[in-house]
């Protein structure tokens, strides 16, 4: 028999409150091109991205600590699939532990020729030192910064 399908598209807008901690982080990023983490006083770990509390100790975090711009690659991937709102593939992204931080933050890698993924993966090898670069026009978003191998 003839089997029918019904297609639906939902386009719903959400406006998420960032709260004080993420707001301060993104304002520093936008206005001063600097990245910060927050210290979990109980464990002493500096958490990046910053959060108001530690999900390990369930205590509020305390002081802000400037992190980066240097760091090292914790892990990476090269993406060949198109995503909404992201640059055309291929591109590389992953996680970097910035200097003075105890956890890694996600971001894009640039400055690496991705034509040959094997060669690119050597340049993005885990443990590789990177430096954070900042966009000239910043909006207070994760896309305001990216990492390049030193």
């Amino acid at each position: 028999m003839e089997l029918l399908k019904r297609q639906e598209t939902w386009n719903i807008t959400y406006t998420h409150a960032l709260g004080e901690t993420a707001s301060w982080f993104f304002v520093q990023l936008r206005d001063h091109a600097k990245l910060y983490g927050k210290r979990d006083a109980k464990s002493g770990r500096v958490l990046v991205p910053p959060r108001a509390f530690s999900d390990q100790t369930l205590e509020p975090t305390t002081d802000w600590v400037e992190v980066g711009p240097g760091g090292k690659i914790e892990t990476f991937s090269i993406v060949y699939e198109e995503f909404n709102g992201l640059p055309p593939p291929p591109y590389a992204f992953g996680y970097v532990q910035l200097d003075n931080a105890d956890t890694a933050i996600g971001g894009f890698f640039k400055g690496v020729d991705l034509t040959d993924p094997k060669a690119a993966s050597e340049k993005l090898r885990i443990g590789t030192r990177v430096v954070t670069k900042f966009a000239e026009k910043r909006t207070g978003d994760v896309l305001d910064f990216w990492f390049e191998p030193v």
Binding site: H16, P49, S77, V79, L86, F93, G106, V142
Partner: peptide, 14 residues
């Protein structure tokens, strides 16, 4: 999360 990670291509395969 919509603050730090939604702008990355973070599906499960990634």
């Amino acid at each position: 999360d919509p603050y730090f990670h939604r702008r990355l291509p973070l599906d499960e395969l990634s």
